[in-house]
Amino acid sequence: MTTALAVRNLRKSFGGLQVTSSVNLLVEAGERRLIIGPNGAGKTTLFNLITGEIPPDAGSIALFERDITRVPSRRRTHLGIGRTYQIITLFPRETLLRNVTLSLLGLSPRRWNPIVRLDRQASLVRDAHEVLARLGLEALADRPVAETSYGERRRVEIAMALAQKPRVLLLDEPFAGLSLEERRDVLRLVTGIPRDVTIVMIEHDMDVALDFAERITVLHFGEVVVEGTRAEVVAHPRTREIYLGE
């Protein structure tokens, strides 16, 4: 088994506040990992550190055994890290098709081309349609994001990341704000992602997320307090103490 993602002794503080203190996280290739923890546990910060959107104070990050601690965040995308945002971060004025096309274009050298027409880039447009079809959004391809429902936008968030065929996919609360039915749809979608994609998910909704996770990491005050299989973590007294407030 190769290690898809290896985070070692990662530390970050804002001002005087330690947001993550010496986090270690090893995720095997193909694994489905769930990260849970109360608000302010440093979960999203951990994602931002892994993608490189914020620099760590200390520690290292490796992607498939390659050290990427000093690699700029946009390059990490090219190396195979994909992510979604907890707060929807799409291009509201553009259509769904254009959103996904922008995602595909991000990895293509064609993104610098100032002469050709983007909507005539047949391969990009075809791939974008395919991704939308996979997420059941094909019918909305020509609709601007601003005119879609919240649940649809959550799915576009995932489409943006999936379009880039990441090797490691970081999902930041993909079920946030969804109805029960929508949650089930998104779960089906996430479980349908092939095994060559390693998935790390932050989620509050234990009912849905537990089904998905193989291993669970519990983060509390910027530290990994419990880690193990689903059964181990659920049974662990510290989990109950921290997460369930018992």
Partner: peptide
């Protein structure tokens, strides 16, 4: 399209590579 993307959602653009 890239230029407009950096106007509307610079953070996402960076994350998209």
């Amino acid at each position: 399209a890239s230029v407009r993307g950096t106007r509307d959602q610079p953070r996402r653009m960076n994350a998209l590579g």
